[in-house]
Simulated scan of single mutants.
Amino acid sequence: MKGHHLAELNIGRLLAGVDDPRVAEFIDNIDRINGLGKRMPGFVWMLEGSGGPGATGHAIGGDALLVPNLTVWEDAASLETFVWGTVHKQFYEKRAEWFEVLGKMHFVMWWVPEGHKPTLDEALERLEMLNERGDSPDAFGWDYLKEATMWKTHGCQVAAE
């Protein structure tokens, strides 16, 4: 979308606290994966502490086990390449080892004007819009983006199971 970038919020709830060995592999690789994302072509911005546990100051609803990841990308292709075309894919495929299955949609995308850095509150509002109304120009999932195709062959679920 000309003059806009793609924002995305993904939320997960850890199965255990950050010091628990069951989530150690995830916790130990947050900086590595986030660093890779920041070096990717098309990366624009990341909420500092994104992808980390509530100790980063981004606890949602006071729940330190909820892990938000909020980023902005130039376009859907850049985000797709990072998610499914790098080592990130290996961590995505192992998410069930570290995260609970949430009872509702926990991933949302929307277009933001170039230069805009969304807040976590703004992102949570977009997620609520998606959960209440389904895909719209204001809040959507992968299937809304006609140019996005990698999610179809890489196991991305449209809704939580």
Rank of each mutant, 00 (worst) to 15 (best):
T71I: 00
H116D: 13
A16K: 06
A139R: 07
G12N: 02
L145T: 02
P53K: 00
F82H: 08
V18Y: 00
L127A: 11
E93V: 11
Q157S: 05
K117C: 10
T81V: 04
E97F: 15
F91D: 00
V83H: 03
G49L: 14
A76Q: 05
W111E: 08
W151Y: 12
L79C: 03
V101P: 14
G85D: 00
L9Y: 09
M1Q: 13
A24G: 10
G35N: 13
C156Y: 13
T149I: 13
G42W: 07
F91G: 00
D135M: 10
P118D: 01
E125G: 14
R39I: 01
A24D: 03
F26L: 11
L70Y: 09
L14S: 11
L9I: 04
K104D: 14
L36Y: 01
A24T: 01
G37W: 01
D19T: 11
T81E: 12
F99N: 07
L70G: 07
D28E: 10
M150A: 11
N69V: 05
E8Q: 14
M129Y: 03
T86H: 03
L9Q: 07
F43W: 09
A160D: 12
N29P: 05
G85R: 06
L14A: 13
G52V: 00
G35M: 10
I30F: 10
E25T: 12
R95F: 13
F140C: 08
D31G: 10
A64P: 14
N34F: 13
M150K: 11
A59K: 00
R95T: 07
R133G: 02
D138V: 03
A139T: 05
V72R: 03
L66F: 10
A77D: 10
G115L: 04
D135L: 01
G12Q: 11
R22P: 09
R126N: 02
W73L: 12
A77S: 15
A77I: 01
M150E: 10
K94F: 06
F82V: 05
A24R: 14
